[in-house]
Design a protein around this nucleic acid. Sequence first.
DNA 1: GTTTTGAATTTTGTATACAATATGTAATTC
DNA 2: GAATTACATATTGTATACAAAATTCAAAAC
Lengths: 217, 217
Amino acid sequence: MSAGRRGGLADEIVAYVRGRILAGDMKPGEKVDQDAIAEALDVSRSPIREALVILGQEGLLDVTPRRGAFVASITREDVIDHYELFGLVSGRVAALAAERLSDSEISELRLIHERFEAATGEDHSKLNNEFHRLINTAASRRTRWLLRHLERSIPAGFYAFTPGWTEQAHTGHDEIIDAITRRDADGARRAMEEHLHAAGVAAADALTERGFWQDAS
Amino acid sequence: MSAGRRGGLADEIVAYVRGRILAGDMKPGEKVDQDAIAEALDVSRSPIREALVILGQEGLLDVTPRRGAFVASITREDVIDHYELFGLVSGRVAALAAERLSDSEISELRLIHERFEAATGEDHSKLNNEFHRLINTAASRRTRWLLRHLERSIPAGFYAFTPGWTEQAHTGHDEIIDAITRRDADGARRAMEEHLHAAGVAAADALTERGFWQDAS
DNA sequence: GTTTTGAATTTTGTATACAATATGTAATTC
DNA sequence: GAATTACATATTGTATACAAAATTCAAAAC
């Protein structure tokens, strides 16, 4: 950890380990060696242990008291299901948004949506975040808290926006906006649930691409 | 931490701090002093820091990089909302249970329910857990994972079964069982959502009783 | 040949030590 | 007198040290 970091090393280590797992670099069931990370990143085990605790809470690691941390054995079903749950909560929020968002907020949403359509590469992820974040302003504090957790937990909101998925996402956003504009709460819920289900499939496919799931050694 | 503990001190510290917060002993906004806990429990700061990370993830503490951990300012609305979300997920599981539980499992559920009715004091919490756990067998692995988190997070599943709440819980369970027996998925969902909403109100009231929310100093 | 047992080694968990930042207090300035 | 600055203190974050448990591997027993 070369840069003159002054605090919050654990967060960087979390990002590092999560990245390696999601990249398919560390396989499910594999042991996470604290000393190995310590050497790789040139840090002590203190912040590493805190990072492993966080990843354990997120569900990416199984942490057993005296045995250590292991990469969780996540199945395709887990990922699909995770997004389904994400959709359950997001759907409720979308329904609220259809009722509570002001007209000007809806205009802003549409603007973000149009920029998404025109955008390229990296920007898609950023604009996607903006899109969902604006909708989520309709949710309670606690709901937003839960969404944040679901988002960073497991393989959510990480995968690259591949050409195919970008197109699909655009269609999904389109339907969501339409329903919200119509003030159709139930339609917004359904559209959001379907959108996130599709996102789950896309995420699972992306993980398959990366050689996630199991070790073919 | 007198007993000859061999590993997993952090979990005990989590329980200790969470207990103190939920008991209204540590007030929202108050700083959590690592040294103070270290002295009180006679442990080093290493496991304490891991405990604070966990409690931060749970939402009971606000942890800021170089400033320390503070008791989160949880409002009554947060608690109500938390249970609402809990109900959203549990409701979906109840709907699944109405479709998927075998007849013998439903009989078992009814048995637990009858024991709950007859039970006294401490047993209510245990039987309540059994009741919900059996229903949750109908859920996917990931859903159970989320429920576990929602359950231990914030003030959920902690409060004492006061006479009034026990009665209310019994009524709620009754309706849930009826709907499941009728194989009425949507009815089970509604019954579960209502049950957990009532639980949220009960929890919020219990916290009020304990002098939670704010410091009247 | 397989299983069991028992040290040697590795790795985790906790404690302590040290460095850097934040906090609190008092003196100084306007 | 209020605000600001400089210094002293306290507290956090990270590194290192040490103790205990788990894993490994080889020798011995069956």
